[in-house]
Design a binder for these strands. Structure first.
Length: 780
DNA sequence: CAGTGAGCGAGCTTCCGCTTGACTT
């Protein structure tokens, strides 16, 4: 056994560091936190100074056992967890869980995984910072109290199994409020006027495009302007040329990597993290959960060399970036390639693409600004007050643009070519007072746009901006709010809309009406009905927690604890008093929340028509629950919401089920069920995807039925005359055995096509009982 | 798999942050 045990958080890091330290040192990993509050109970003694009850979770017992063996045999245990609040707490929990003697424990920290940094750390050990640990305990206990007191209120007042928390509930709030802004948005139309002039250049003619400085509210105004332009003279009134520059973006943090991978590569935030994890484990990149934009000196030096060799001295601009995000703890470096001289990473295609992105971002961050020349040409219209303006941009020195340009949410189509060019057009050479020949002027009707819906990545950006959540939780938080069905990530088809066009061409004005698609969305986050109801409930009763500044406010208090200026349990006490009493009051006095909304009266019976969340989702209800006659119910369709459904749309839902026709002497019924629209024939169900159950014809229904019958025949690999219940079928995950309602996996050494009935039954009999794991859904 | 919308009320659900495997269909 080695004399020195070093414990870090990540096993990949342990491996690297062991290489630096050599003989006498063994480096092991804690795999993150090693103790936590019990999951089944509050585990915080609210009567007794908020004393937390910690345990070693089942999946950490092995880790602790192994660490203990090494620790007991070591002279010194070096706790080398991350230098932030959580890392300090991990060190303290390790000391407690391993029952380490104070005298043999040394706490060390480093921000970069380089030999010099590690050796320097070893020379400068310190003790565990108990104040910082206490700040973490306050964070942990606060989150537990909020999560475990709010969630049960939701079970009681809204629906079982729901959840609420400091981070997730605010994330949902952002999406709900954005959706309402969009619903309330009234677009306004205006007329944008663009002129195209012909400019002779040598013996060629080039075009100069210019926008009118004013927009017109009304078609009549646009028309009036075009009339003035008939026979007007257009001349260059002013020419302005001014230098400008563009600067590169800072190296990647978790959040900016997620945003760029989403915009440039179309990855979800979870996907980005999975791919980055693989690159990290392969030693290709530095740690991927970080809020720091800092590069180590050796990395900057490597970047300098790389830029000098590939592009030349004038492209080098080594610089340090300052983090802008609230609450950044900077325990790691920025995300960068481990070796900048490696331009590719190997691995699969998704890893290569992400690596290339990280490489370019890192290199470009150490490159010079791009020098631009902006040109503004003002064109006078003799018969009108307004001017046309043409903008041009010329890149005088490309600098970092040679490698990489950050995308914006608006232009997510940009690709990462080798040279990311600025987009503005080049202008033809013109001189002051030059008279221009008009080709045409177009006035087109445009519309103001509602604020954009969130993507996963833009939500992460917003959360980070508010200081809510940490690099390790951005992706899981986004998954949680979708798993709870508060939010859905969806595509939406756009709608066609008309817009007007006015052309001035050859001295005549023509008008036309054209069509365009508007409102199409791809992979955007939409709040569900339950998401909105839960949000409104929480906002009404727990304003403090739902405030966008709540996290930032408590962070200030955690800082005070870390500075030793405040006791952690005192801080929690001050929070818990008012919080717990609002929990109690809400529990006792608040109504059940179902988002109920009155839509009108049923014309046939005069009974009220309401919409609300029912036991199985959003519904329309005609009639009162207390009426003698039972109310009628209908489920809302996908894309309909209790918040926006109209009376007419609601009444349409009662037109189902309907008879769509007959086939083989049996009726075809079209309806919508638990799993979406279907047609039913001879007691069998056939899902319909493209067709509308309200419209589907007899002919189309028969097509659907026949298509399903054909697919079913093709699914069957083998059947047995003696026992019709047993079948060998081909499914999504390969070939399997189906007996009644149960399915069984076929062992690898058996050829599915040769299975006998006896073998099938044997496999079924020997199949392990179904495990009730985390991933299996339990029956209700 | 696809009617429902509540009725006894057992026994369950839930947080955030730090880390990776070991799982399944």
């Amino acid at each position: 056994m080695e004399k020195n045990l070093v414990i870090v958080e990540s096993p990949a890091k342990a491996k690297t560091i062991e290489g630096f330290l050599g003989e006498g040192y063994v480096v092991k990993s804690s795999f993150g936190h090693v103790r936590d509050l019990l999951t089944k109970e509050l585990s915080v003694d609210t009567e007794n100074n908020f004393d937390p009850k910690y345990e070693i979770p089942a999946d950490k017992k092995k880790v602790i056992d192994e660490l203990k063996k090494y620790a007991d045999n070591a002279e010194t245990v070096w706790l080398a967890t991350d230098e932030d609040r959580e890392g300090e707490a991990i060190s303290w929990h390790l000391k407690e869980a391993l029952k380490l003697d104070e005298s043999k424990v040394k706490r060390i920290v480093f921000h970069e995984i380089t030999k010099t940094a590690i050796l320097k750390a070893i020379e400068n050990p310190r003790g565990i910072d108990k104040n910082l640990v206490d700040a973490q305990q306050a964070r942990r206990v606060l989150d537990r109290l909020v999560g475990y007191e709010l969630s049960p209120i939701l079970w009681k007042k809204v629906k079982p199994s729901l959840s609420a928390g400091r981070v997730q509930s605010v994330a949902v709030r952002l999406i709900v409020e954005r959706e309402r802004e969009i619903n309330a948005f009234q677009n306004e139309s205006f007329y944008k006027v663009v002129a195209e002039f012909a400019v002779p250049e040598g013996d060629k003619i080039t075009h100069l495009q210019a926008n009118l400085s004013e927009r017109f509210k009304l078609e009549s105004e646009a028309h009036e302007f075009l009339t003035k332009c008939q026979g007007a003279t257009f001349s260059i009134k002013n020419l302005e040329v001014k230098p400008s520059k563009k600067s590169p973006s800072a190296p990647f943090t978790t959040s900016t990597l997620q945003q760029e991978a989403s915009r440039k590569l179309g990855y979800s935030v979870a996907q980005t993290m999975v791919v980055a994890q693989k690159l990290y484990e392969a030693g290709k990149i530095t740690y991927m959960r970080t809020d720091s934009v800092n590069l180590s000196d050796s990395a900057s030096e490597a970047a300098r060399k790389e830029i000098e060799t590939s592009y030349g001295d004038q492209y080098v601009n080594i610089q340090k970036y300052q983090t802008k995000s609230k609450g950044a703890q900077e325990a790691h470096e920025a995300i960068r390639p481990t070796y900048l001289d490696q331009h590719t990473a190997g691995g699969d295609n998704s890893e290569q693409r992400l690596y290339e992105l990280i490489w370019k971002r890192t290199i470009s961050s150490q490159m010079s600004d791009a020098q631009l020349e902006k040109t503004v040409v003002t064109i006078d219209v003799s018969a009108a007050e307004e001017n046309f303006i043409a903008n041009g941009e010329v890149v005088k020195f490309d600098g970092f643009l040679k490698v990489y340009l950050e995308s914006t949410d608006e232009s997510n189509t940009e690709t990462i070519g080798n040279s990311a060019k600025a987009e503005k057009p080049l202008l033809p050479a013109v001189t002051l007072n030059q008279i221009l020949n008009l080709n045409e002027i177009t006035a087109s009707e445009r519309f103001t746009k509602h604020p954009p819906r969130f993507t996963e990545a833009s939500l992460v950006r917003k959360l980070e901006e508010l200081g809510i959540g940490r690099p390790s939780t951005f992706a899981p938080t986004i998954s949680t709010i979708q798993k709870r069905l508060y939010v859905v990530k969806e595509d939406r088809e756009g709608e066609e809309r008309d817009y007007k066009l006015l052309h001035l061409r050859n001295g005549a004005i023509e008008t036309a009406v054209k069509q365009e698609i508007t409102g199409a969305e791809r992979a955007k986050l939409f709040p569900s009905d339950i998401g909105m109801v839960v949000n409104d409930f929480l906002v009404e009763h727990f304003q403090n927690i739902m405030d966008y500044n709540f996290t930032a406010n408590v962070e200030l208090e955690f800082d005070a604890i870390a500075q030793g200026q405040k006791q952690w349990n005192k801080m929690i006490d001050e929070f818990y008093g008012p919080f717990h009493s609002s929990v109690k009051i809400t529990e006792e006095t608040s109504e059940k929340a179902s988002g109920e909304r009155m839509l009108g009266d049923d014309p046939e019976t005069g009974k009220p028509v309401i919409t609300r969340i029912g036991r199985y989702g959003p519904i329309i209800q005609i009639g009162d629950r207390d009426d003698e006659e039972k109310p009628r119910f209908a489920s809302l369709r996908k894309n309909q919401s209790i918040e926006s459904i109209t009376f007419e749309e609601a009444m349409d839902l009662f037109k189902l089920p309907r008879t769509a026709g007959t086939y083989e002497d049996k009726e075809i019924i079209a309806a919508i069920g638990r799993f979406g629209p279907y047609v039913k024939h001879d007691d069998k169900f056939y899902s319909i995807k493209e067709d509308d159950p309200m419209e589907i014809s007899e002919e189309r229904s028969i097509e659907v039925i026949e298509a399903k019958r054909k697919a079913d025949r093709e699914r069957v690999v083998k059947t047995y005359e003696e026992n019709k219940e047993v079948q060998v079928l081909k499914g999504r995950y390969g070939i399997y055995i189906s007996i009644g309602k149960n399915n069984y996996k076929i062992p690898k050494d058996k050829e599915p096509r040769d299975l006998t009935l006896e073998e099938c039954l044997e496999i079924a009999a020997n199949a392990p009982a179904k495990k009730k794991g985390r991933f299996t859904k339990k029956k209700s």
